[in-house]
Design a protein around this nucleic acid. Structure first.
Lengths: 343, 343
DNA sequence: TTGTACGCGTTATCAA
DNA sequence: TTGATAACGCGTACAA
């Protein structure tokens, strides 16, 4: 018994009585191969159990057949935010059927982000990357242009971008939340926002401001780093202030849950004394008490579309701008009319 | 200006006035290169900005310089469990400094697990894989043996395994929780367990049983799929039963949070009427009200050690059995003595 | 230290 | 149109 060596294209060619090149043509469905010859080649390949070597293919065509995702948040923040696991499942929905691998990198404060992208690029590890949490004047846009890597951004950057973008209009979701609160009768509302440097967080803040103004509500905004701890801090600050809000719109579910705990700890009842809304409608929000009213976004669908769009970009299609369906509001127990003496 | 072509090893050899082979030797710190020649070669490489091509290296040495992680839980369950993001950050702590890439795959019900591993193997995408959530008579062990891929398992499998294992003794953590409750005076306790098919979940159950017996407590165990929804269901069942427990030990934090909500919804106060403990001491548990008493495990450290161990296995070292530090118990507000009339 | 074969597909060139 | 041949991508390993 010969040593366990996998068959090569040469073995297949020999078995089918043709040349290496023709095997390649046959397998890639390219013209110039007679039907019966093609059949003979495919049969030989199947018989031998031959699969083209990925590394050989990578070397000759210069593609990695993989895409990259660099997560730039600190571990604490990703751990508290179920968006990423769900989004990644969505990416895989597409990648797994197209034979792409997903290369995941984590750029914590210690591992600089730019280095991570550069490493991915110089090694040609990936054929393209997905950019999440787009920031104001995001340095990754010019960096990836320089590196010559195709990309897809989640949301449209505020700088000129040659990349495809897949966006959901967070503003619509925030507006739904504010309108819901206004309809319930709230007059003093607050927003616990994400980092103002992140475009989607900023957009949520702006939409909050606009919606509150339109509804004639008094409003306040507190910025956070998206972590549950910071959400708790922000909530405490809001509740301590004179003229504290009767409703708080949070920029993610984790912070909303933390905020709810802070309120309850002070004997402030949710929703009787304070209404709370979350964002992303994650699993955990459904299982706290009271259940969280939250803006529903389709993280998994977003992943799927982002992956698909990136693959098209890699294939050379011009950068597309794709808009996802607008978010909706899942109304649950954490919102109610304000206390009677509120105003 | 010539087309943007990256320099090859031949370019470096020419620039340094040596042969290709010697460049390779110099770069890999191998003997047989005169010091000054080596310096000249390195200088030339730096000057040209040359980096060895990963795909060429992969082809010639037959390594992918990447490791794989296949997550087999359903997206709902991963989204609710912060263990994975944190664990992945730990993997990256090691991989990022050793030039390995992390290939992440998600094997949902639709994408069969075995196929995923097979695909990884036939494409030689990875040099080794990390196996989490080891199950009873886990089919992945023989599968990976058959595929010839090195692996590291999280925990020691119950079948003969040729792979390295990195384990934390969950039993210790559960015992700490039960003893804590017994000391507080509880006499009727319950455990909301993970899937009995998962070895670590089963171990937690067994330890719970043993600890409860040893302390002379009446006990009950309910199995779940680890999801928050199932945790809620299990809690409802426990609270509905006659002779319901005064304390519940959960197998993860997400379920504990969900269980707490179910109790509160029924007007059962935590911890006055019901004590609750979680597992993994995740961020969210610190920010619910009351804060969750939870077993602290070091997911990130686990990732680091697992990655390191896998790399050693890939390098050919014999399979190691590594034990991590024992978990501890973080006591917070969700546990207290049972109500007076409890017994 | 050097030269060269080798790993393995892909693709351009050329002959039938 | 069908097929063969050979060059190519790039680093590694071994004989010289």
């Amino acid at each position: 018994m010969p040593p366990q060596t996998r068959p090569t294209i040469a073995d297949v060619a020999r078995a089918a009585g043709v040349s290496k090149g023709l095997v390649s043509f046959a397998l890639n469905d390219r013209p110039g191969v007679a039907p019966d010859t093609r059949a003979r080649i495919l049969a030989a390949a199947a018989e031998l159990g031959w699969t083209p070597s990925l590394s050989a293919r990578s070397l000759s065509v210069g593609r990695a057949f993989a895409c990259g995702l660099v997560i730039g948040r600190s571990p604490d923040v990703i751990a508290a935010d179920p968006f990423f696991p769900t989004f990644i499942a969505g990416l895989e929905d597409e990648f797994s059927v197209t034979g792409q691998a997903l290369v995941l990198a984590v750029a914590t404060p210690g591992r600089k982000e730019a280095e991570t992208y550069r490493a991915l690029a110089t090694d040609r590890r990936v054929d393209g990357v997905i950019l999440t949490d787009i920031r104001v004047d995001d340095p990754r846009i010019p960096l990836l242009q320089e590196l010559g890597i195709p990309a897809v951004t989640l949301g449209v950057p505020d700088v000129a971008s040659p990349f495809a973008a897949v966006s959901a209009d967070d503003g619509v979701g925030i507006r739904l939340a504010v309108d819901h609160l206004a309809t319930l009768g709230h007059r003093r509302v607050a927003h616990v926002a994400g980092p103002d440097a992140m475009l989607h967080a900023r957009r949520r803040s702006e939409s909050f401001q606009a919606a509150a103004d339109a509804a004639g509500l008094r409003s306040r905004i507190v910025e956070t780093d998206f972590s549950a701890a910071d959400g708790a801090r922000a909530t405490a600050a809001l509740l301590d202030a004179a003229d504290s809000p009767t409703a708080i719109v949070y920029s993610n579910d984790g912070m909303a849950v933390a905020g709810m705990a802070v309120a309850q700890q002070r004997g402030i009842r949710v929703p009787e004394d304070l209404s709370i809304t979350g964002f992303d409608d994650t699993e955990i929000g459904r299982w706290v008490h009271p259940a969280l009213t939250s803006v529903t976004t389709d993280a998994r669908g977003w992943g799927l579309v982002a992956a698909r769009t990136l693959l098209r970009a890699i294939a050379g299609e011009p950068p597309a701008r794709i808009a996802l369906a607008d978010p909706t509001l899942a109304v649950r127990g954490s919102t109610a009319p304000p206390p009677l003496a509120a105003d």
